[in-house]
Design a protein around this nucleic acid. Structure first.
Lengths: 291, 291
DNA sequence: CAATTTATCTGACTTTAGTCAGAAAATAAT
DNA sequence: ATTATTTTCTGACTAAAGTCAGATAAATTG
């Protein structure tokens, strides 16, 4: 009973659907049926293409059409033809729509804050929720190329620096000049990849272009709640592909032997250990891979 | 973004409702609307009193009545008057109903098993789900008096013994004669209390009656995922009340200084340290409280 | 260019869910 | 014993969700 995976999962499901009922009630707190409320929120969250909303919410085209007319009549959205394909239609929030969406957001934020607040040790609960959320949706993870200055990238990098600082005996101090290598990881000189799941960044990797006949992989980091799922390998592979498409033939990386899991992975992925190729104080292991 | 409690909670909620949609689909996989399916499952899970089901599922009496007629027409249930109060009605599954319920159970079990199976480290996910489930429903926890031989009690006791074995340097070996003190914790000589949440035992405590002018509190245990929520104190208080109602005036307990959290709690709850009062090898600290 | 495909819309449905005002019968209160 | 309350049931509703067969217009294919 206490250890049976099925019993535990079903109990989790019961607990969560009870709670979800309460949370969905927040969607009903503004005198609007669930359907229109969900569509309005999808639009507010940036899914403006109607076919996409329809697919996301699994709505019949007829039903969708009527819901859109209703929201238009309320003055919350405007619908116009897509520029690239006049059959497709794009929904936009009006000013009133923005306000209504903000009101829903405020309700949801309050619900979320309440859940956390009534726990005596919020961080324990939050970490558990992170693990569950990552696990449940893991196959929806998408890897996208962004600028290393993208706020979502910055968030990952800061977490990476913080973690290195904890793990290296010497601590870790990013060069004071803010993100000195950012321009080298800007496409097409290099690249910066972000793994996104449910709107949350869960991992990153940088490809740093150089003028020395090789490129470097830098700043591979996976959020703790997503570790052990094979995401790091996927990021490495994607970064390699990115390098290939930029015509890069040789990759290098440096690391520290403290990060034993990472070192093991580099070996597994076909990297070979080489001599020190830079003067950085933190790394003590150096790898190369010809692609 | 990565640390913001509200963003993390909302992401969790999104992940879980997406998943819940899939799980609820299992309730639709047998060609029956959600309403009747939920009622059938409530009856199958042992909620037979119609008023109770109505309260549990928050259904209008008219709607409930019609759903019951529908399930009767399908030959899945029979409804009869309660013996104690002929206004109230009791629903029972027929043979066909049992089978239908079992089919729903099989679907749910399969869904649950699938979720766990596709995770590379199931125990990590399961522990996280335990923490979340406990946190979300915590205020629904009910403490009930059961026999110490109740299978749910046995499950807790085994977990307790296992944990003691890990924590005590000397290990821990329950007296080979199966649960030697069980009869002393049988009401009304003593009592055994179980904390239940969503059908899962999450903690226990035993009140052992003796003939020596005092009773003992034994086997206080809280499932790891529920620790830090103040449940142990609530169990202690309930056990004290139980003792009072049995006319007991003095309580004792023994413990080991390794269990420092427990020791701190005993002090906090007004227990006073006393001399060793038994020859057990494991405890090294002894407490008393007059009530 | 004609034929086909795609995305949306409209109208005419059905099903499911939920509400509400009594009616009937049993029980509890005075 | 009468009155009030509780529990369920029935009928007559409304609202919301979902389905389906075209119609329309834009894009794609051969």
């Amino acid at each position: 009973m206490l250890t049976d995976p099925v019993a535990r999962t079903r109990r989790f499901h019961r607990a969560v659907t009870t709670e979800a009922g309460v949370l969905d009630a927040s969607f009903l707190g503004r005198g609007r049926p669930l359907g229109p409320a969900r569509v309005l929120n999808a639009i507010g969250r940036g899914i403006t293409d109607i076919a996409e909303i329809r697919n996301y919410l699994r709505l019949d085209s007829g039903l969708m059409s009527r819901i859109l007319r209703g929201l238009e009549d309320e003055g919350l959205i405007t619908v116009s033809a897509s520029e690239s394909d006049a059959r497709r239609r794009i929904a936009m929030l009006t000013k009133a729509g923005e306000e209504e969406f903000a009101a829903y957001e405020a309700l949801s934020d309050k619900q979320a804050a309440d859940i956390v607040a009534r726990h005596p040790h919020p961080e324990v609960l939050l970490q558990a929720m992170d693990v569950v959320a990552t696990a449940l949706g893991f196959e929806r993870t998408v890897i996208e190329r962004v600028s290393p200055l993208d706020p979502r990238a910055v968030v990952c990098l800061e977490a990476y620096y913080e973690e290195l600082g904890r793990k290296l005996k010497s601590g870790f101090d990013v060069n004071l000049s803010a993100d000195p290598e950012a321009c080298d990881m800007e496409h097409p000189r290099g690249a910066f990849l972000l793994a996104m799941l449910d709107g949350m960044p869960i991992g990153c990797i940088g490809l740093k272009g150089t003028d020395k006949g090789y490129a470097e992989l830098k700043r591979l980091w996976i959020v703790p709640s997503a570790r052990g799922m094979g995401l790091a390998q996927r990021m490495m592979t994607e970064a390699e592909n990115e390098a290939k498409s930029l015509g890069i033939k040789c990759l290098r990386l440096d690391t520290n032997s403290v990060l034993s899991d990472a070192v093991a992975m580099y070996h597994k992925l076909g990297w070979t250990e080489i001599e020190r190729f830079n003067e950085d104080p933190y790394p003590d292991l150096f790898f190369e891979k010809r692609i």
